[in-house]
Write a protein that binds this DNA or RNA. Structure first.
Length: 571
RNA sequence: GCCCCCGUAGCUCAGCGGAUAGAGCAACUGCCUUCUAAGCAGUGGGCCACAGGUUCGAGUCCUGUCGGGGGCGCCA
């Protein structure tokens, strides 16, 4: 909120300089930065340096003119020129006090932006096949997608969270899973069974089979795949839903892949592609190859077996053409994906975000190509890749293989370290970097997790405000106050939340908010040590500092709710 | 071979093209008769992988090299 106001003030000052002929008319980028050294002031701008070239004036000259204008603004205590042409800005106490009051008045919503002008965004994430539990490898995408959705909402967009269920009846994986469940079920009721070759091992199959027996007794002894496939799928989806809900992730839509086939939407989409001439059954595949000598990219035509329907995605920037319908007539996953994205656009979303695991990065090109081939603007589609998390147990990398049952369920992690620690851990690092998660260390040191550091600041404030109330002190509006440095820094950081949310939303880097939260907590702890809050002999100061505490608590709560972690009042 | 990600303190990692590169953990030294010590203050620890380039200015952008991780099916 402060930064936005400062930007406006600078813009109008620059406008005035252009008006008076000091600066030639041009588009000048305005940037507000924070000096590393607090002695330089509260904020700074490098405007004189960046504008120097296009204005054809030396930076100090511009800085001088601009600072003269800014000095007339009552919100600045000091405007100084430093170094090669930075303008350092120091805010008045009254201005900071007013900002702090605003936050206490508005409550947690102070950081939110109205959604009137935002986009309607669909964000699809997790989308784990219904043949196993959500495991710790999926946790990152779940935490990331959910928090990104919250952050985008806070930044003023309308966001719909979607889980795409790969429930196609032709899915080989689902068929094998169902056969495994069937075998396990027959074993449980003491009937002869054959466990499918390379079938699914692991507790998911056991649990599902057990549940089916609990529900149906042995009445399904003679049932076939037609029963076991949908039945085990439904149970698995319910289990995924409840694990995710416990993790704080609730979807608006669970979208069934099969529903696209049933409604004929896959056929429709393919017909459109054929009509547009971007899909055909000619027996060739175009590929882009790199000439080893000239380093030039060229299209190479490779003959193929006839019969398949090809998407000519190479024309839209993909590496090679892709099969949509196999020789045997069965559609590939690309077919339903095309229909699915078309359906999302037709549901009225301005922007589509797909959150995918790193193993899917190769699909960005073909999906974007397919979307463009369908006639949609590819810039409205965005695939975000979450890098791999490696889990270490006893110093060894844990494999996450559903079929062998080697994976660690997310619910086990929640049992071991709790939802707050788990979510925080996933969210504290950029989604595009690799992470190693040592499970032994996480259990041992879970009380040293940064999330506790931040939550502790919140609990401290709650306790302090309660104690003050007992003694008859409540926060009230700040008026003329002399701030000490820790108070100043704290208020500025609180006011930064709105800005941080927008930056996180625009860059999709939601981990910035965990960094922000740690910084806010650090400053509160610093303030707590240096500025005694409750002192009965100084009632005015006591109330003022309580107001700062209240504003801090507000900012912490707002941040916690974006990250999906709890705000404990006691620790 | 091609594609994606990473390389910053002993470890795990933050770091918006700006001023003296940070945090947590680990190590060491202090601080509870006053608001929660899950805290605070301090010490040690860095050729920001390397080499070029762009820029008034590069840990940050571009190119290349080296090293690490992952991915490249008419599987989903």
């Amino acid at each position: 909120m402060i930064r936005a106001e400062l930007t406006r003030k600078l813009e109008s000052a620059v406008g005035a300089l252009i008006e008076s002929g000091v600066l030639p008319p041009a588009i000048y980028p305005i940037e507000i930065t924070e000096p590393r050294n607090a002695q330089h002031g509260d904020f700074a701008t490098n405007f004189a340096l960046t504008a120097s070239k296009s204005a054809n004036l030396p930076p100090p000259k511009i800085a001088e003119q601009l600072s003269e204008l800014l000095k007339s603004d009552t919100c600045f205590d000091e405007v100084t020129i430093a170094g090669p042409g930075f303008i350092n800005l120091k805010l008045t106490e009254a201005y900071l006090a007013e900002k702090c009051n605003e936050i206490v008045d508005k409550g947690e919503s102070f950081a939110l932006t109205d959604s009137d002008h935002g986009l309607k965004i669909n964000i699809e994430f997790v989308s784990v096949n219904p043949n196993g539990s959500i495991h710790v490898g999926h946790g990152r995408g779940a935490a990331y997608g959910d928090t990104l959705a919250r952050v985008l909402e806070a930044a003023g967009n309308r966001v719909s969270r979607e889980f795409y269920v790969n429930d196609g009846v032709n899915s080989e994986q689902m068929r094998l899973f169902a056969l495994s469940v069937q075998a396990k079920y027959l074993e449980l009721i003491g009937k002869p069974y054959v466990f499918p070759e390379s079938g699914y091992r692991g507790e998911d199959v056991d649990i599902v089979a057990q549940k089916l027996r609990d529900i149906h007794g042995d009445s399904k002894a003679g049932a076939g795949i037609d029963f076991f496939q949908p039945a085990s799928q439904d149970l698995m989806i319910e289990s995924q839903k409840s694990d995710l809900a416990r993790f704080g992730v609730v979807f608006d839509t669970w979208f069934s892949e099969q529903s696209l086939h049933d409604a004929g939407k896959v056929e429709d989409a393919l017909k459109i592609l054929e009509d547009k001439g971007v899909a055909d059954r000619e027996p060739y595949c175009d590929e882009i190859q790199l000439d080893p000598n000239t380093k030039e990219r060229k299209v190479v035509r490779v003959p193929t077996e006839p019969g398949a329907l090809w998407l000519r995605s190479t024309r839209f920037g993909d590496d090679k053409d892709r099969v949509i319908i196999r020789q045997d007539g069965r559609p590939t996953y690309i077919a339903s994906d095309i229909a699915y994205h078309k359906d999302k656009f037709e549901r009225g979303f301005d922007h589509l975000i797909d959150v995918w695991g790193a193993d899917h990065h190769g699909y960005i090109g073909r999906t974007a190509a397919a979307i463009e081939a369908m006639g949609f603007d590819r810039s409205r589609f965005e695939a975000l890749i979450i890098q791999i998390v490696r889990f270490l147990k006893g110093g060894e990398v844990q494999r996450m293989q559903k079929r062998t049952g080697e994976s660690i369920p997310l619910r086990d992690l929640m049992d071991d370290v709790g939802v707050d620690v788990a979510r925080w851990f996933y969210l504290m690092r950029s989604h595009e970097t690799h992470m190693d998660f040592d499970l032994d260390l996480a259990k041992e040191h879970s009380e040293q997790n940064p999330v506790f550091y931040v939550q502790y600041a919140h609990a401290r404030i709650c306790s302090l405000l309660a104690k003050a109330k007992e003694q008859g002190f409540e926060p009230e509006r700040l008026s003329e106050t002399k701030f000490e440095q820790p108070e100043r820094e704290l208020i500025k950081t609180i006011c930064d939340l709105r800005f941080e949310i927008h930056r996180a939303a625009e860059s999709r880097q939601v981990h910035r908010l965990t960094t922000y939260a740690v910084e806010l907590a650090r400053q509160y702890h610093d303030f707590y040590e240096k500025c005694r809050v409750i002192s009965p002999e100084e009632p005015i100061r006591t109330r003022a500092r309580l107001t700062i505490c209240e504003a801090t608590r507000t900012a912490l709560r707002a941040t916690f709710s974006l990250l999906g972690v709890s705000a404990p009042e006691r620790m």
